[in-house]
Nucleic acid binder design. Structure first.
Lengths: 237, 237
DNA sequence: CCGGATCCGAATCGATACTG
DNA sequence: CAGTATCGATTCGGATCCGG
């Protein structure tokens, strides 16, 4: 019951047969953040029907993209195989490409922890960050909280539970969050306009797309330098 | 009538909504070779239903990926917008990724001129080719003929009609094919095994996956050096 | 021939309910 | 927690048809 074939002997075609079905690449995106349990994936993809999720996971396993790993006392998790992890630069590039076309959030659109984590990864500018001093941010968007640590060209992102506790360290997404962040700020989806450069940090605060909760507000400049996606090509209608 | 939303405010999600529908990325792949008429696309995607083709073309236009251009005395063509052309490295990377998972061709699988052109582009090693002398190949696979010219890190691929005439120069895929190629060879889908390094050129000839038609057979080594995809990660079942 | 539009059965997807 | 089962809503695929 191989997926419907496109009838061509071609690498692109094979790739699309492996990860081109609806929802598949979004599952891969979330797994790029770290291994996830079935329920985690379901929460991270609020609109996915459960039967589709389980079908996709099976197909991705058959395709050698995803692996199912039983964890002692901890249920079981899905994780990318080495072959699946090769998709990381491709998914990041797609995220950058799609970013340019994102408008305002549609009615009912949500931001999830995993998608925001990947968005920050796609926006991270290794070269710019390497020339800046390290910084430790806590970013609040809607009801999710990320601890974002930049040190040279290294980026670590950890998901923090609203209650204050980090997520299960066994799942490997945890960075050391000892100590206080240098800057804590809260934003809505309008954070996109900061990353695209449509607004400067100062303007972002003025227009209330963003608010500093604690720490040194001038670090927002450094944040904007480290995380930026140039929409690039002007969109031609 | 926006495409079914995934309900997330995220660059990857937006990208998948733009080019994630069935057949969409294969249309983009063919348009990366050059502008194409509706009928060209239909021939290059033999199994696409015509209603799906026209639906996708409309969606890709709405998404700013494809543009419809009337040509004087020459019908009309579809071409990528600048924004759509940004997808080139992504499609090439996907082609490389899928290449590693390609087995033998399935029953009824075909190789098209555009897919082979893109396959050679994905396999082209700029760095290796830059250190080699220029070469001019004519490659026959099944019933398609490509003129492949390598000069330093430059690669030009032109599609040649079986009759001997190149395709319509107005569509821009035409390279100057003056003179005779240095090497002409014919292969079947087994050319994949040469590009992956599973067989050396000598073995390829021995095992009849490939036959030299004319020219200097030793140039096959140079071809294999210039076009190569390392399957890389061992596939874990 | 080119560039589609239309119709219809088959397969997939989405939403909800339910189970070991 | 980790999925199946069910079933109506969509989409896809294949064929045919149509205006220029």
């Amino acid at each position: 019951m191989a997926s419907r074939s496109y009838g061509q002997y071609c690498g692109v075609t094979t790739a699309v047969e492996l990860i081109g079905e609806r929802w598949a690449l979004l599952i891969v995106r979330d797994l790029l953040v770290g291994p996830r349990r079935y329920t985690d994936l379901k929460q991270g993809l609020p609109k996915i029907p459960t039967n589709i999720l389980s079908t996709r996971l099976k197909e991705l396993q058959e395709g050698g993209v995803v692996r199912r790993v039983p964890m002692l006392h901890c249920g079981l998790v899905y994780e990318l195989t080495p072959y699946g992890r090769v998709l990381e630069p491709i998914v990041l590039a797609l995220g950058r490409w799609g970013f340019a076309q994102m408008g305002e959030p549609g009615e009912g659109d949500v931001v999830t922890a995993d998608s925001l984590t990947m968005a920050l990864r796609t926006a991270f500018r290794t070269d710019a960050a390497a020339t800046l001093p390290p910084a430790d941010y806590e970013v609040h968007v809607a009801d999710i909280v990320l601890r974002v640590q930049v040190a040279g060209s290294e980026l670590r992102i950890a998901q923090v539970q609203p209650a204050g506790r980090p997520v299960d360290p066994k799942l490997g997404t945890q960075a050391s969050t000892a100590g206080e962040p240098d800057l804590t700020f809260a934003a809505g989806p309008g954070i996109r306009r900061l990353i695209s450069g449509e607004v400067t940090p100062a303007e972002a605060i003025d227009q209330e797309v963003l608010a500093v909760v604690a720490g040194d507000a001038t670090l927002l400049e450094r944040f904007a330098s480290s995380f930026h996606i140039d929409p690039g090509v002007t969109l031609v209608a």
